[in-house]
Amino acid sequence: MLEGINRKYDISGIIASLVVLAFSGLLIYLLYTQIPYGQDKMLVSKDYIKMGVNSTGATNLVTSVVLSFRGLDTLGEVTVLFASAMAVGLFLLPGAGMWQREENFVLRVASRFLPYLIILIGIYIVSQGHVSPGGGFQGGVVISSGLLLKLILKREKESGFGGLVHALESLMGAGFVALALVGLVKYGSFLYSFGPKGVPGTLLSAGVLPVLYAFIGVKVASEFVAILERFTSSGEEDERA
């Protein structure tokens, strides 16, 4: 085994390692001299910090950056996830019997109550995204892990289930774009954060931002379940010419 690696990759391996080493050294030198660690290097961020809470109502500045100042990036991110879910659906054909697991005492008992706790925590993370660390993506992933724990013991594939996740994914994505378009049509700018600002720091604040996060949370959760379902289904890979 070792000899195979050595023979095939000797020269190119050495060259690659040297190049990477040189590059890393150069990188460290540049970082150390050009981008001083721990110093205030902010430019546009100063304005974000000054205006973030007043303009969006969210006390979590990162949320105001993610959903308001740089909302278009978040839309792109949502799109990337959606596209990857679609791509996985393209590669892997659906198979029979996803969740076939051996009966396992710990798993059986835990899956009776643990998923709900996890999903609850996930919902908390999503809903508090504008006042504390959290948000749609983080919470969505937690929710999906709870869902998967719940489903891992199902013996037959849920017939309507696949459809539900895809419908949810699509609707939430479209909903996000729709809200962004509302901003365009009604307020003149795509992704304008509208809605009642409320009292910053409370749950019902920041206008449409928590709604956007909720959409993202549901979308991410359903997307993950869909992707993982495709991965674990034992499909027969036939010719698709």
Binding site: R70, L72, D73, G76, E77, T79, V80, A83, S84, M86, A87, L90, F91, E237, D238, E239, R240, A241
Partner: peptide, 21 residues
Amino acid sequence: NVFVFFEIVCLVSFALVAYYR
């Protein structure tokens, strides 16, 4: 933003190139 859109384009391209079996 350019990076994000670029990733969208790349990801879809990777997937579509490998369409056939």
